[in-house]
Simulated assay, not measured.
Amino acid sequence: MGIAEDLMNKIKGLLLLTAILVTAACAPEVGSEAWCKAMSEKPKGDWTANELSDYTKSCVFK
Rank of each mutant, 00 (worst) to 15 (best):
A25T: 10
P28F: 05
F61R: 15
G31F: 00
A25C: 03
N9Y: 01
V30D: 11
T56R: 07
T48I: 08
L17G: 07
L52G: 08
M1E: 11
A38Q: 15
C26N: 06
T18R: 13
L7R: 14
L14P: 01
E51S: 06
L15I: 06
L15G: 05
S40R: 09
S58I: 06
I3F: 12
T23D: 13
I20P: 00
E5I: 14
M39N: 02
K42M: 14
A49W: 02
E5H: 11
V22F: 14
L21W: 04
L17C: 05
W47I: 09
N50Q: 10
E33W: 03
E33S: 12
W47N: 01
K12C: 05
S53W: 08
A4S: 13
E29G: 04
M1W: 05
C36S: 04
A34M: 08
T23Q: 01
I20M: 12
A34P: 02
S40C: 05
C59Q: 12
A19W: 00
G31R: 02
D54Y: 06
N9L: 03
P43C: 07
T18L: 14
N9W: 02
A25M: 14
K42V: 06
L16K: 14
T18C: 11
P43H: 03
L52Y: 04
I20D: 04
C36D: 01
S40Y: 04
E33M: 07
L15E: 15
W47G: 07
I3Q: 10
K42R: 15
F61S: 12
N9S: 07
V30I: 14
L16I: 08
M8T: 04
K57G: 07
E29A: 09
A24W: 04
D6C: 11
C59K: 00
A25P: 02
V30S: 09
L7I: 14
T56M: 07
T23Y: 01
W35K: 03
T56W: 00
A38T: 13
G2N: 15
K62V: 09
M8K: 13
C26H: 02
E29M: 12
V60R: 08
K42Y: 03
I3V: 12
V60H: 06
C36N: 00
F61M: 12
S40T: 09
S32H: 07
P43N: 11
V60T: 05
S53Y: 13
L15N: 10
L15F: 02
L17R: 13
D54A: 15
L17M: 09
A19N: 01
N9R: 04
M39Q: 10
A19L: 02
A4V: 13
A38G: 06
G45Y: 02
N9P: 00
T56E: 12
D6H: 10
E29I: 14
A19Q: 03
E29T: 15
D46M: 13
T48D: 07
A49I: 03
S40A: 11
M8P: 01
I20A: 02
E5A: 15
E33Q: 13
E33F: 08
A49M: 10
N50H: 05
S53A: 12
T23L: 13
G45I: 06
K62T: 10
E51M: 03
S40L: 05
S40N: 06
L52M: 08
S58F: 01
D46H: 05
S58Q: 10
N9M: 08
V30E: 14
A4F: 01
N50T: 11
T48N: 04
A34Y: 01
I20V: 15
Y55I: 08
T18K: 11
